[in-house]
């Protein structure tokens, strides 16, 4: 259940931003979660509701954007969508592929009331 520690990391980062901007609450937060990041969206949703209670994010409207996986074949150079870390290249069947998208775990933006 590392998703709860992910949520607590988000709470810490959000609290830092709120402090820097002297805001007492955050209105909205947008996260980008890669499909290959190792974080399950369902588990994150569950952990979120528990993890933000009484925090700076308690009232915040949240938006999770799932970033689909993409990889590039190291043998033939093809860029193609992937859903797992072991999808082979659809053209040359090579497993030598580099994931180019989908590992993201990012706080994209935070909306708060400015002083």
């Amino acid at each position: 259940m590392h998703e709860l520690s992910i949520v607590l990391s988000v709470v810490d980062a959000a609290a830092q931003v709120a402090q820097e901007n002297q805001a007492e609450r955050i209105d909205a937060i947008e996260l980008e979660i890669g499909a290959l990041s190792g974080v399950e969206l369902d588990a994150l949703e569950f952990a979120w509701s528990e993890g933000i209670k009484r925090s700076i994010l308690a009232q915040a409207e949240k938006k999770f954007t799932l970033i689909p996986g993409k990889a590039e074949c190291s043998d033939c150079g093809l860029s193609f969508p992937v859903t797992t870390l072991y999808d082979p290249c659809p053209i040359c069947n090579s497993y030598f592929v580099q994931v180019t998208q989908g590992r993201e775990l990012k706080i994209k933006s935070i909306t708060l009331e400015a002083v």
Partner: peptide
């Protein structure tokens, strides 16, 4: 959920919304 410390009083808000584009890795601290 419980508080371990009393939060400092926040400054009076002007009510103006501001969106900060962080683009920050959630695991940045780790």
């Amino acid at each position: 959920p419980h508080q371990h410390s009393v939060p400092a009083p926040a400054a009076v808000s002007t009510g103006e919304k501001k969106t900060i584009h962080l683009e920050q890795d959630i695991l940045a601290k780790n």
